[in-house]
C-alpha cells in the first residue's frame, strides 16, 4: 500500500491524515527524520511557516527532506508548506527547502480579516473546488517547467513541477479530497517508476 507521511511538527496535520485516508492511501505523522525512509510521499501542512521552519532546523529535517524530493518522491505543500517549498520568497533572503521553482509572496491576500473562501478551477483536478484561504500566500512567478494549476483573481494559487505540488489554500479543511487524491496518484506513479 502507498504510505504518505504528513510532517507533524506544527499545524493542521491531523486533517491531512484524514484526507489521505479518505483518498485510499495510508497516512503517518512524521515527527522524526528517520521516518522519511518509511514513506512514499510527503505532505507539508499549513501552520505557521516560521514556526515549522524553526522546528525543521531543530530536528535536522532540512537536508533529509530535500534529498527525499530529489530522489523522485513527491512532496505536496499547502499554504505554509508552499512557502517552505519555494525557491524564492518576496522581500526575504530566507529560503527554506527551496526545491520548487516558484517565487512566493507571504500573507499576500492580507491579514486574517481578509481571509476567504472561493470556488476555483484547478486544471485536471476539479472545476468547482471550494478553496479556503487563510492568511494565504500566492505564487508571483514560476519557472519554465512549472505548470500553473489554478489562479484566483489573476494570482497563481496552485502549481506543479514534476514531483512537487503546491497550493496556497487548505484542501484539508473541507470534505473535498480531489486535490489530495491527485497527489496520491502522483505518489503511486512515482512509486512505480522508482521501483523499475
Amino acid at each position: 500500500m502507498t504510505t504518505i507521511g504528513v510532517l507533524g511538527l506544527q499545524g493542521a496535520f491531523r486533517e491531512h491524515v484524514r484526507s489521505v485516508e479518505a483518498s485510499g492511501a495510508s497516512a503517518v505523522v512524521v515527527k522524526r527524520k528517520e521516518q522519511l525512509d518509511e514513506i512514499d510521499g510527503l505532505i507539508i501542512p499549513g501552520g505557521e511557516s516560521t514556526t515549522i521552519r524553526r522546528l525543521i532546523d531543530k530536528y535536522e529535517f532540512l537536508e533529509p527532506i530535500q534529498s527525499f524530493g530529489k530522489q523522485g518522491n513527491p512532496i505536496f505543500g499547502t499554504c505554509a508548506g508552499l512557502i517552505l517549498l519555494a525557491s524564492e520568497i518576496d522581500g526575504s533572503y530566507d529560503v527554506h527547502l527551496g526545491v520548487m521553482d516558484i517565487k512566493v509572496r507571504r500573507n499576500a491576500f492580507g491579514r486574517q480579516r481578509e481571509s476567504f473562501e472561493a470556488h476555483l478551477d484547478i486544471d485536471g483536478v476539479a472545476d468547482d473546488f471550494n478553496a479556503v484561504f487563510i492568511r494565504a500566500p500566492y505564487i508571483e512567478g514560476v519557472g519554465e517547467n512549472t505548470k500553473v494549476l489554478a489562479r484566483y483573481d489573476g494570482h497563481i494559487v496552485a502549481a506543479q513541477e514534476d514531483q512537487y505540488l503546491a497550493c496556497s489554500f487548505h484542501p484539508e479543511l473541507t470534505d473535498d479530497h480531489r486535490l489530495t487524491a491527485h497527489f496520491v496518484g502522483m505518489v503511486e506513479e512515482a512509486k512505480k517508476a522508482l521501483a523499475l
Binding site: 501552520g47 472561493a118 479543511l173
Partner: peptide, 21 residues
C-alpha cells in the same frame, strides 16, 4: 465570488495554530 469571515475561515485559522504556543 469569495466570502470573508466564514466559520471555516475563522475556525480554520485556529486549526493552523495547533501544536503551537
Amino acid at each position: 465570488m469569495s466570502q470573508t469571515g466564514t466559520d471555516r475561515v475563522k475556525r480554520g485559522m485556529a486549526e493552523m495554530q495547533k501544536g503551537g504556543v
